[in-house]
Amino acid sequence: MRVEIWSDINCPWCYIGKARFERALERFEHREEIEVVHRSFELDPRAPQDARPVVPLIAAKYGLSLGEAEAAEARIAENARGEGLPYLSEGRDAANSFDMHRLLHFAKEHGRQAQLLDSLYRANFAEERSAFEAGRLVELAVEAGLDGEAAAAVLADPEAYADAVREDETTASAMGATGVPFFVLDRRLGVSGAQPAETFTRALEQAWESRVALPLTTLAAKE
């Protein structure tokens, strides 16, 4: 059974939701038969390329004061730490994530998507050094087990894997997703948001029990 997860590196609830889903998956009886695929979704495709402090961005987006935006970040940090995740609640920045998504598709081809995603989340939410700093993405790709020169070549070509990112986003839109994280189990059951682990457990069980068992097809040997 396949579970597809649409997410954005700029989304702290995606970071938290991933941890909650993985906790549920660890306890799932049939976890070895679950394929997890991460899909691209940009919360703000028009976000600038240059990194900017997160708190003023949150304030502007949601019409909050800086104090209210800081409090919102603190609440998110508390939720993250409740899942055992490190979270830098002050001094974080954000920028356009399209290149990150392109690099994740490159990593998927080389079987290192999950490792790169973890590295990107850690860099964006738990480290003081900006994930958007020049050359940082190549370093993170190498940390995830990818070839640095190949990763740099992908980032240098703005069209590399761009269609794959857009295809993911088009699919999410067709499914009615307006935000992330968005989890789709076997293209039959959707779970929106960073739900508690118990909700993901119920979703996995429901999708597993209702999956369609295909009849065995036997191919006749050629004479």
Rank of each mutant, 00 (worst) to 15 (best):
S7T: 10
W13K: 04
C14P: 08
I16P: 12
K18P: 04
A19H: 11
R20N: 10
E26A: 15
E26Y: 02
R27A: 15
R27S: 14
E29F: 00
R31P: 03
E33A: 14
E35K: 11
E35V: 11
H38I: 00
D50A: 12
R52E: 14
V54P: 00
V54E: 09
V54G: 00
A59C: 08
K61R: 15
L64T: 03
A69H: 06
E73C: 09
R75M: 12
I76Q: 12
L85F: 07
L85I: 06
P86G: 08
P86Q: 05
S89Q: 11
S89A: 15
G91C: 08
R92D: 02
R92W: 04
D93A: 09
A94N: 03
D99K: 13
F106K: 02
A107G: 11
A114N: 11
L116A: 12
L120A: 09
Y121E: 06
E127V: 08
E128R: 15
R129L: 04
S130V: 03
S130E: 06
A131C: 08
A134L: 04
G135T: 09
D147G: 08
D147V: 03
A151Q: 06
A151W: 06
A153R: 12
L155C: 01
D157K: 00
D157F: 02
A160D: 11
A160Y: 08
Y161H: 14
E167V: 10
T170D: 11
T170V: 09
M175R: 13
G176M: 11
A177Q: 10
V180Q: 09
L185N: 01
L185H: 12
D186C: 04
Q195H: 04
P196W: 07
E198C: 05
T201H: 07
P215D: 13
T217I: 13
T217C: 06
K222D: 04
K222A: 08
E223K: 05
